[in-house]
């Protein structure tokens, strides 16, 4: 389980996170939602120790993040984490060189799944394919937790479909996934839990099936209630 407790952060005088708390279970897909500037990316960066924060605590299976955690939790930001002059094959080799949790078989399977070729240069890829390579780099690690920042933004509809299919496949089986998005349509049926953020605060944290079952509301209905108050 990933526990975020009372996370606060300032950029200069501006408070970007004002005491964020939520949890994300293993085996579930948790979605952080909110308009741009709500603090979604900052939260992910903080979980991965890619930025400092003023106060609060983040625990991953009860432990603070350390260098070994990167074999257990990984982050797929919204831009590719490899150098443009590398080929896809070189990027995969880089991962293999450094991560013991790298799963070569899965990497090959993903290449096929996304229809990517190893000899292609990253700089020559379309936006959609770049996003797929980026996703592949994270998915081919045998990690328990996956963080994805806006995996659907700015790419073509077919790439979106392909990426959405990842979530229903064995590729995320039994993993804990945290995903950020400002567009719920692609994944409304896929997520277990939604965390609605605004202005650095959690406005509501709920199970999507429970809200449908108990209140007869769609995720968008709840968002409308929460944001248009």
């Amino acid at each position: 389980m990933i526990e975020v407790k009372d996370l606060a952060k300032n950029f200069g005088r501006k408070k970007v996170l004002k005491g964020i708390s939520f949890t994300a279970e293993k085996g579930e897909i948790t979605c952080l939602m909110g308009i741009n500037g709500a603090g979604k990316t900052t939260i992910m960066n903080a979980i991965m120790n890619l930025t400092s924060f003023k106060s609060g605590e983040i625990l991953i299976d009860g432990e603070k993040l350390n260098k070994h955690s990167y074999e257990k939790i990984t982050f797929i930001p919204d831009a590719i984490t490899m150098l443009p002059q590398m080929t896809i094959g070189e990027a995969l080799q880089f991962m293999k060189d450094f991560y013991t949790s790298w799963n070569e078989i899965r990497a090959k399977e993903l290449l096929e799944f996304f229809r990517l070729k190893e000899n292609e240069k990253i700089s020559s890829l379309s936006k959609g394919n770049t996003a797929k390579v980026n996703l592949l780099l994270g998915l081919a690690l045998d990690v328990d937790y996956l963080l994805m920042d806006e995996p659907f933004s700015g790419i073509d509809i077919f790439s979106r479909e392909q990426i959405a299919n990842v979530f229903t496949s064995h590729l995320v089986e039994d993993r804990g996934v945290i995903i950020t998005t400002h567009e719920i349509n692609d994944i409304e049926h896929l997520i277990d839990k939604a965390v609605l953020l605004d202005d650095g605060m959690v406005l509501r944290e709920f199970s999507t099936e429970e809200v449908r079952e108990n209140e007869g509301k769609s995720v968008v209905d709840v968002m409308r209630e929460v944001y248009q108050r």
Binding site: M48, N49, L50, K67, H68, S69, Y70, E71, T74, F75, P77, A79, I80, T81, M82, L83, P84, F94, F98, Y99, T100, S101, I122
Partner: peptide, 17 residues
């Protein structure tokens, strides 16, 4: 800087920074 975010990769390597 640039379109990539290689620093993410470097900082997320399972090794001492």
């Amino acid at each position: 800087f640039g379109k990539n975010t290689f620093i993410y990769r470097l900082l997320m390597l399972p090794t001492a920074r």
